[in-house]
Amino acid sequence: MQRETLFLKISVILMGLPVLASCIYLLPGIAEFFAELNPKLAFLQYPFLIGLYVTAIVFFAALYQALKLLSYIDRNQAFSDLSVKALKNIKTCALTIGGLYVAFMPLLYLMAEADDAPGMILIGLIIIFGCLVIAVFAAILQKLLKKAIDIKSENDLTI
C-alpha cells in the first residue's frame, strides 16, 4: 500500500505545482490584460486577483487535506474519525471554490464579453461543475466511511 499512496502523494503535489506557478506568473498578467482591455472595469482588477488567490488558497487547503488522508491510510488509520474529518474538509473546500466561482461568474462574463471569448464562461462553468462533483463524491465517501467506522465499533463491542 505504501507504493500506491506514495504515487498518489506525488500526484497531489504535482497537481499543486501548476496552480502555484500560474498564481505567481500568469494571474497578474491576466488581470492587467483585463484592465487594459476594458478600462471602464479596470477597478475590478484587484478584486478579481484577490478572488483567484483566495480560490488558490482554498485549493491548496484541499490538497493538504488529501495528503493528510493519504498519510492516515499509510498509518492504517483509514477507518478513523480523522479520515472522516479530512473528507469533510475536502468537501467544504470544493463547495467554497464552487461558490467563489459562482460569485465571480458575472466578472468572467464581463471579461468574456470584452474579449469576445465565450470559452471563458464555459471554463468557469466547468470549474463549478467539477467542484460540485468533488463535493458530492467526498460527501458520499464521508458517509460510507462513517458507516464503516460505526459498524467496526459495533463489532468491537460485541466481541
Results as ranks from 00 to 15, higher is better:
residue 5 T to V: 15
residue 6 L to G: 10
residue 7 F to W: 06
residue 9 K to R: 15
residue 11 S to G: 06
residue 13 I to A: 14
residue 14 L to Y: 07
residue 15 M to H: 00
residue 20 L to C: 12
residue 21 A to K: 03
residue 25 Y to P: 00
residue 26 L to I: 14
residue 27 L to I: 04
residue 28 P to R: 05
residue 30 I to C: 03
residue 30 I to F: 08
residue 32 E to G: 02
residue 35 A to R: 05
residue 36 E to R: 14
residue 36 E to G: 02
residue 37 L to I: 05
residue 37 L to C: 07
residue 39 P to L: 11
residue 40 K to E: 15
residue 48 F to D: 00
residue 48 F to E: 04
residue 51 G to M: 06
residue 52 L to Q: 15
residue 53 Y to T: 00
residue 53 Y to V: 05
residue 53 Y to G: 08
residue 55 T to Y: 09
residue 57 I to G: 10
residue 57 I to L: 15
residue 58 V to T: 13
residue 64 Y to R: 12
residue 65 Q to K: 11
residue 70 L to I: 10
residue 73 I to K: 04
residue 77 Q to A: 10
residue 77 Q to R: 14
residue 79 F to T: 03
residue 79 F to H: 08
residue 84 V to D: 07
residue 85 K to E: 13
residue 85 K to M: 02
residue 87 L to I: 10
residue 92 T to Q: 13
residue 92 T to L: 15
residue 92 T to F: 06
residue 94 A to H: 04
residue 94 A to L: 09
residue 94 A to Q: 07
residue 95 L to W: 11
residue 95 L to K: 09
residue 95 L to E: 12
residue 96 T to C: 14
residue 97 I to L: 11
residue 99 G to M: 09
residue 99 G to Y: 14
residue 99 G to I: 13
residue 103 A to G: 12
residue 105 M to W: 03
residue 105 M to E: 10
residue 108 L to D: 14
residue 110 L to Q: 15
residue 114 A to I: 09
residue 117 A to S: 08
residue 117 A to G: 01
residue 120 M to Y: 11
residue 120 M to V: 03
residue 120 M to E: 01
residue 120 M to G: 07
residue 122 L to V: 13
residue 123 I to L: 14
residue 125 L to W: 09
residue 128 I to F: 13
residue 130 G to N: 14
residue 131 C to P: 03
residue 131 C to I: 04
residue 132 L to R: 01
residue 135 A to P: 04
residue 138 A to Q: 01
residue 139 A to N: 08
residue 140 I to G: 01
residue 142 Q to W: 02
residue 143 K to A: 02
residue 146 K to W: 09
residue 146 K to L: 12
residue 148 A to T: 02
residue 151 I to L: 03
residue 153 S to P: 04
residue 154 E to M: 08
residue 154 E to S: 13
residue 154 E to Q: 09
residue 155 N to G: 04
residue 155 N to D: 09
residue 155 N to R: 11
residue 159 I to V: 14
